[in-house]
Amino acid sequence: MLDIYEFSAVFPSGTEIYSQNVQNNIRSNRRTLGGSLFFDKLLGQLHVKSGYLYPPAKDGNLEELHEKIINAEIADHYKQSLLYYLLKDCSAFEDAEVAETFAKKSHLPHKYWIVIQGLWNLDHLEFEAALEYLTHPSLLPAFTEDILCVLIEHGKPVNKHLPLAYYNAVRPPLTNPDLQKSYFTYLARLSLIQAYFFIETQPVQDHKSLFQLLVDDALQHSRSDSPSNVVDELINLPLTEEQEAWFEEYLLEGKGRTYHAARDTVVARRLALGKYTEAIEVGQQLSGRRFNDINWDGIKNMVTTSLGSRVEIDSVFDPSKI
């Protein structure tokens, strides 16, 4: 079994792992990830006070970092994990087998090998590769909210489904309100319907605010490929009676009333539900307006034909009486 306490047994002699280019890449990735790599977080969680030594910038820094790791009051498998991470740097730039050889010879438990591989990929902005490891069913969740946050902020340009895939596999608790809002906004722009059903998975006290955020996002951020689809989906959601009240209150009386299409959306919703006279009541100010390429006057005429004498349509829609 390899002796992890012997520096020369862990790091191949004569191997220059941390060239200036490698150091610059690591520091650049740290800035991209908000000033903290997942390796930094791991060192902090294990109480190894050595952040200033990574990446090793001077002769002897790597040996000093090794010493701090092996002298830390943590289990050997944690020490092996940290050393394996450092050898991954070597694998990337020098010997592709050195990290795996170390893992085998030191008998690093497989689940720790998997999680370190995933965190190393994250720190190197290799998001798709990271998820192959970090969603492995054998892993206990670690840094789950931090990982989701990184995927929302940086993973979408690579693959817009990465945050959703990670959330569905790991189910982080979203205890941070900002992260909950960030993930919900991401989900709403990916799929309004998925975001709607996601609301039910969250604490009851958050349902109304998330629902309002859903309406906000639908009216503010139309999809570039088919802008009208977002509002169409909103109008046709299977709202509960309580949500129906939230919907109308928010768009007719609350903050949402300031949106250009707020009243139009309520009218369209009422029409979709077959509430024709109620739609006319709230749509009296919309004469001459267009909504999703439909002229409200044309809608008025169709409703007039359908309802006949049951409602005085013309007087309701007459702009001179508003």
Rank of each mutant, 00 (worst) to 15 (best):
F184D: 06
H207K: 13
I116K: 06
A165H: 15
W113C: 00
V115D: 02
V115I: 12
S91R: 06
S91I: 00
H154G: 02
W113S: 05
L134T: 03
P137L: 04
V170S: 03
G155H: 12
A165Q: 15
K105S: 00
N176Q: 15
L86S: 01
E200Y: 15
P172D: 12
L86M: 05
N121D: 12
E145K: 14
L108D: 01
F197P: 03
F143W: 07
K88N: 07
I114V: 14
Q117R: 12
L134F: 10
P157A: 01
H124I: 01
E97S: 15
P173V: 11
Q205G: 09
L174R: 13
C90F: 07
V204K: 15
F143Q: 02
L187G: 02
Y133H: 13
L174F: 14
F102P: 04
V150W: 13
H207R: 15
I152K: 05
Y183L: 14
T144S: 15
C149F: 15
K208I: 02
S106W: 05
P203G: 11
Y166H: 14
I152Y: 03
H107E: 11
K208P: 02
F143S: 02
A103N: 00
P163C: 11
L164H: 10
S191W: 13
I193A: 00
S91M: 05
Y85M: 05
C90G: 13
Y85D: 02
H107Q: 10
L164G: 04
T144N: 11
D178G: 03
V115R: 08
N168G: 05
K88F: 06
H161M: 14
T185M: 09
F102W: 01
P173M: 10
I147G: 08
V204R: 15
D89F: 08
V98T: 08
D123I: 06
G155S: 12
I116T: 09
A165S: 15
L151F: 01
R189L: 09
N159C: 02
Y196M: 00
L86Q: 04
L164Y: 09
L174D: 11
R171F: 11
S138T: 07
G118T: 04
K104D: 00
H136F: 07
L179N: 02
F197N: 05
L162Y: 12
S182P: 09
R171Q: 14
P109L: 03
E97G: 08
L192G: 11
V158C: 09
P203H: 13
S106T: 09
L131T: 04
F197E: 10
Y196D: 00
D146M: 04
V204N: 11
L174S: 09
K181H: 12
Y186D: 05
H207M: 09
I193T: 10
S138D: 06
P157Q: 00
L122H: 02
W120E: 06
L86N: 05
I147M: 10
N121Y: 14
K160H: 07
V158L: 08
F184N: 08
Q117G: 06
H207V: 07
